[in-house]
């Protein structure tokens, strides 16, 4: 199923590209991001804790990027799975500059949702997805405008190419994740950064994708 959405970000096309591909930034801005690791060429693993309702749980995501055309577009192949269910999606992301110095991020996706999470009702999923996307884009925009207060990332970010320790024991954060970070993740687990962590953004977008998908199921 094809679906799309967009967000206006306060930065140039280059700045947005840079931020969206900066794993340190992403680790800070992805709501509930627990860890981010590179597992291969343009392939990443991301663990995200979602703290809302029946969607609550830790999702392990695999993301692969292709067709990268900096700073204009890339294609993300993402899958996320956790106890609540799984999602598989292909998302095309495009950045379009405007005359006002802002950049419009447009995404277009094709996705499949499965597992128990598919049974909790589309408005529930849509609600969670909207909230997470909103938090993510707000946080990214704050990075771009410098409004974000400097603070350490709560997420564990691994640079090892080999299998990083899976954060299996990552505690589930409190439901309110207003900063867009996993509040309960121990900061002592901080590791050096991986390159290109757009997968994190992808996983957040998955929330949007899921919501869209369920929202359009009957159309």
């Amino acid at each position: 199923m094809n679906l799309d959405g967009s967000a206006v970000l306060h930065g140039s096309q280059d700045d947005v590209w840079r931020v969206l591909t900066d794993p340190e930034v992403l680790a800070r801005t992805i709501p509930g991001c627990l860890s981010l690791s590179r597992v291969g060429e343009d392939s990443y693993r991301v663990d995200v804790a979602v703290g809302v309702g029946a969607v609550k749980g830790t999702y392990a995501g695999e993301v692969r990027l292709s067709d990268q055309q900096p700073p204009r577009s890339y294609v993300m192949h993402a899958s996320g799975a956790g106890a609540p269910g799984n999602v598989r999606a292909t998302v095309t992301i495009e950045l379009t500059p405007s005359d006002e110095g802002t950049t419009t991020l447009t995404y277009s996706a094709d996705a499949v949702v499965g597992g128990p999470v598919a049974g909790v009702g589309q408005r529930m999923i849509t609600g969670v997805a909207k909230r997470m996307a909103g938090q993510f884009f707000t946080a990214v925009d704050a990075e771009l405008t410098g409004a974000a207060a400097p603070r350490p990332s709560a997420a564990a970010v691994s640079s090892t190419d080999a299998a990083a320790p899976a954060p299996a024991a990552a505690p589930v954060p409190a439901p309110q994740v207003s900063t867009g970070t996993a509040a309960a993740a121990p900061s002592s687990d901080l590791r050096t950064l991986a390159v290109g962590a757009a997968g994190g953004a992808g996983l957040t977008l998955l929330g949007v994708v899921v919501g869209w998908l369920l929202g359009r199921r009957r159309d």
């Binding site: 809302v52 309702g53 029946a54 049974g119 909790v120 009702g121 408005r123 529930m124 609600g127 969670v128 909230r131 439901p175 309110q176």
Partner: peptide, 10 residues
């Protein structure tokens, strides 16, 4: 409703 602890489905 999303912040109500214990919510499962809508």
């Amino acid at each position: 409703a999303l912040d109500v602890e214990g919510l499962v489905a809508i």
